[in-house]
Structure formats: C-alpha cells, structure tokens
Nucleic acid binder design. Structure first.
Lengths: 238, 238
DNA sequence: GCAAAAGTGTTGAAGGTACACCCATGT
DNA sequence: ACATGGGTGTACCTTCAACACTTTTGC
C-alpha cells in the first residue's frame, strides 16, 4: 500500500473534466422550443461530432469556474445560472483514457447572439432539444441526467425564470414548465399557485401585445423567491 | 489553446479522490446514537488526525467502486447502501495540490465488528455524531453536506431501513428519523403513514421484549418500497 | 401498584385537482 | 363576426397537523 502522499504524484490517475448542459429558450416562442448548446469537436476522438461544451479542469481551478471558462472559450457565452448535477466516471466513457467528468446544468439568456466558437471547438450552435444530432462520448446520457435534475428541482430553484426573458406572461411560465416536465398542467391552478407564491410581480401597465387579447407581463423577484423557497421547505414525509 | 488530446497527458491536472461518509447506528439504542466512521491518518498531511475514509481513484476504476474499495481497505467494511452526494474541488482544500473529491454517503450494518484498519489508515473507529473530533482537510464540511443530502432524501430513499437492523419497531424508525432530521415527529401521524405506506411488514409473532410492554417487529420490503417510491413521485409544485 | 414504553382515532385546516365560461383583441 | 389566446371561481377530496388516553409489561 502506498501512502497517500506518494500516490498524488506517482500513480496514473484519471483526468477531470467538466461538461455543461447549457439550456436556453428560442425567441420565436410559438411552440416554445428548448435549445441546447452543442459544440463541434475540432480534435479526435470524435472530431467533427457534436458534443456538450466542456473540457479539462486546470490545476487550482474551481470546478464551477472551469465550467464557466469552457463556455466562454468554446462559445463566448456567460450563463446566469449554474448548478452541479454530479460526477460521472465510468471507465471507458472516454477512449483517451480514464476521465471523470463533473456535470453542470446552466442557463443562458435568450440565444440571440449566435455563439462564437473558439478553443477546442470547431463551431458552436444551438439545437432544438427535439432534433439533436448524435452526441459524442456518453453525452446523450449526461444530457438526460441533467434534464432529470432540472425536472426534480424545477419548483425549488429559479431555473424557469433564468430561462425566461426579464418580463414574461404567466402562460410563458406554464408552457416552459410543461416542456420541461413533459406533461400538461391545469391553467387555472397553475396561475393561482404562481400568483399566491408572491415572487412574481406584475409589471404595471406592461402588456404583451399579440394577435389577440394582450397579456399581463410579470417579472421575477429573486428576494421574494428566496423567502418563498425557505418557507416552502416543509417536505412531505412517508 | 492546446487540443484536448494533448491536455490529457501534458497538463498538470487535479487528482481525483473519493470520500465516504459511512453511517451506522449504535447497538445499545437507548438514546439512539448515529455513528460515523473515521480513520486516523497515517501519513502527512494531517498525520494523526481523524478524517473521512477515502483516497485516490485508480485509473480505470469506477467512482463508486473506488469508494467501496477504500472502505474495505481502510476499515474492512462493506456497506449495503451507497449514494453519490456530489463533487467538491475548491482549490486549496488539499495542501498536497489540487484535488477534486467525489463525495459518497454509505450505510453499514450495525457497527458490531470493530473496523480493522489497514491501507492508508493508522486506525479506524466509529464516533458518535455528536462528539466528533476535529477533522482533517474540509471533511467537516463534507460531512455536513452528506447529512444534508440524507435529510433531503430521507423519505425517497431506503437509507433509514439500511441503517436499522433486519427487524425493528416503528418507534425505532421514528427515533432514527428524528435524529436525522433534528426535529420531533408526531408519533401517531408517523405510525399511520408508515403503516399505510405498505412497505413495512409486521413479522408475525415477533416482538421486541424489554422492560415494558413488548413492541411489534417489522421488516422492510424493498420491492414494495420501490413501488411506493414510484407512486409517490407526484411532486408538489409552485 | 407504579413506572415506562406501546398502541390507538378524530377533528379542523390547508392544499390539490377537476372543471367551463366570458373577455379582449386582430383580422 | 369570428378566431384566438387571456383571464377567472367553485366544489370535492385528499392530506396534514394537532391532540390524550388506554394497554401491557417488568419491577
């Protein structure tokens, strides 16, 4: 048995990467399309394939910072929301050698600016969540895991409101939740709960005009949400 | 910008460790004491201090397997339950260099057999959760994070029943939950919910005798629990 | 017979779910 | 005027929280 101190330097050991599932919402939100950022790999393995943005963690770099750095390098994007999903290290998931990845979900403001690729990425692009290409490595599984994480945390974190523009209608929120949860929600119940929650403030006099009746616009109030989240943490039990 | 392929081998990079918060319940369960396994470090840094069991991940080794291996090496124990908590990689958390740790919670059957130390550990010992020594590295924070994880998952995972012996009374479950959640629970409501849940089966004719009225013993039915957990996943919403 | 833990029901409040119609606007 | 999405209230049911006394045993 070697001592731990020796191992640090002597033993072959897995590499550490971060991978990021960066989500956004398409602007023309008629059927409301969830977008995922992918990069086209510039180097082998999987050169030319699409993959989640990500890469190796530098020495003395915080994990979350590494995730943000990779997004900046590979797509010129700075998300407003990041959460760790977990670590995956199944042997064989990377043909280059043993690689442990720490997976993050992040949310970017509307993908207006087309991402500029650089760094390890040949190009970077938003894809609709339905209509993704085949992904490199085990990234399809990672994406699934990240979306599951979002689904579980949807009502406890502010993901939804990071995805939406600064002002939005209650129907926007509902449509988004329905996309994420993959099920329909009752409109009146949804609106009632959201209004009672107290962390959405109607923007006085602001209406979304459309082809039909205008809709009241709301904005998200982070401080009130924090209070709400703390209050609501009375978990159900057996 | 180097290519990813080169980086794998050329760049200095963080090491990967696993750390395990191994929990158990003390046998003489009068006030019901939660036990945590700690190892005494045999090597610097922190030689002689107490720390969570754990160590470096070998190449081509699965993360969870690494956690189990470290437990076996350092304490001769094989837990019946393991869950990943997350990855922590704050720079400076390990004086030897940048180290990313993947944190696990595990549960061992009653700590009857005193753990035998070997591997990197000079000794290994169970400590009551109240009454822990000062811990090496950032392990105190890791332990807190692991317990928080357990608290959040207490009603969705089978942790409780992995901690308890094969047969137990309803009061055992309640006391355990109260210790983990750090709050009192209503006895009648607790018992009702647990009985209705359908994953506890009374062991016919088996009673715990004591100084007072005997108590009915139950056993945990994993298959029924799985069904219960699936059914109960109708999460509350906003 | 008394100390100590086991066991047992009911009630009121809150929250969840299901459900159908009128409103405001653009064309 | 009509098509389209925006907006609203009620009734029923389930679930949760609060609460006190009787039973069985060992000593």
């Amino acid at each position: 048995m070697k001592s731990a101190t020796q191992r640090t330097y002597d033993w072959p050991r897995p590499a550490v990467t971060v991978d990021v599932v960066l989500l956004s919402l398409a602007e023309p939100q008629n059927p409301l399309s969830l977008q995922v950022l992918l990069v086209e790999r510039g180097a082998d393995p999987y050169a030319g394939s699409w993959a989640l943005p990500g890469g190796f963690v530098h020495e003395h770099e915080d994990l979350q910072r590494a995730a943000l750095r990779e997004l900046a390098e590979e797509a010129g994007l700075a998300p407003g929301f990041v959460e760790q999903v977990g670590a995956i290290g199944t042997p064989g998931r990377d043909p280059r050698g043993h690689t442990v990845t720490v997976l993050y979900v992040a949310v970017a403001p509307a993908p207006g600016a087309p991402p500029r690729a650089s760094g390890d990425a040949r190009s970077a692009r938003w894809f609709a969540h339905d209509g993704l290409p085949k992904l490199a490595f085990d990234h399809a599984a990672l994406l699934e895991q990240a979306l599951l994480h979002v689904r579980r945390r949807i009502a406890r974190s502010s993901v939804c409101f990071e995805l939406l523009p600064p002002t939005f209608t209650l129907n926007d929120v509902q449509l988004l939740c329905e996309v994420l949860l993959r099920r329909a929600l009752d409109r009146r119940n949804f609106r009632r709960k959201l209004e009672q929650s107290g962390f959405l403030a109607p923007v006085k006099g602001a209406l979304r005009l459309g082809k039909h009746r205008p809709a009241q616009l709301y904005r998200f109030v982070p401080k009130a949400f924090a209070r709400y989240a703390a209050r609501t943490w009375s978990l159900p039990f057996y």
